[in-house]
Simulated assay, not measured.
Amino acid sequence: MEKRSDEAPTATEAAGPTGEGDSTAEGAPPEDGAPGASPGTGARWRRVLAGVLVVLLIAAGTGLFVRGRQIRDTPATANQALTDTAATDRVTGDVSSALATVFSYAPGTTTATKASAQHLLAGAALKQYAALFGQVEKQAADQKLTLTTNVVRAGVTRLTGDSAHLLVFLDQVYEREGKAATTAAAQLSITAHQQDGVWQIVDITSR
């Protein structure tokens, strides 16, 4: 049957004739020793592949190094409260002792308490304390007021170098002459800074 010239070629016809036994696709590099292969063609391809592998290995190694640095430099690993028990215990002890000292007084000890605060507090915390302690001195004298503060629990939430943030729970016992003592609980957020090897409280926020 005569084929019409305007019919579209089939997929087989479009692919062109193939010869049985012809396994080398057009455009693919011939193997060494194959008919038409130029000497060293296979060697050149092996060198190209080796070069590509070297580049990939270098890129992978660089990526792993950068990722390792990122992991080491994350905020979590920079927080010594998670890794340095000795430093954490030191700041907890210093801050707890300071709070118990500056928030404990009796009618005859307010002057000593105020003097201690000059060494244990600094920055905004010292300014806040100085502004309020004048009223405390008068109340302690007029009402024969005694305040005893005990740190029930203190935890360091962040410790980086010379700066620390803590959450502190206190029990405070108020005693007035001739009246029964009363106890109140307090919760404070504390920021401390290390100065000359001693941790000073620089900010106090009631929670």
Results as ranks from 00 to 15, higher is better:
Y129H: 07
H119K: 12
S5G: 10
L126P: 01
H193V: 09
T109D: 06
Q200E: 02
G178R: 05
G108K: 12
T18P: 00
A14I: 10
V48Y: 13
I201Y: 06
T205E: 00
R46V: 13
D84S: 06
A122T: 04
G42H: 02
L132Q: 11
Q172C: 01
E31S: 10
R153S: 13
E137T: 13
T88N: 02
D84G: 05
A186P: 02
E20V: 11
Q143R: 14
R47V: 11
D142S: 15
K114L: 07
L121T: 01
P35C: 07
A112D: 07
E7V: 15
G51L: 06
L145E: 00
T18W: 07
S5M: 12
E31T: 12
G178I: 00
A34H: 15
F103A: 06
T85V: 15
I204F: 01
D171Q: 15
A86M: 03
R4Q: 12
T12A: 15
A100C: 08
H119A: 11
T88Y: 02
L49H: 03
R153L: 04
D162V: 11
E7I: 13
Q195G: 09
D84I: 02
R153W: 14
G36C: 10
A34L: 13
L53K: 13
A140H: 04
A8G: 10
A186D: 02
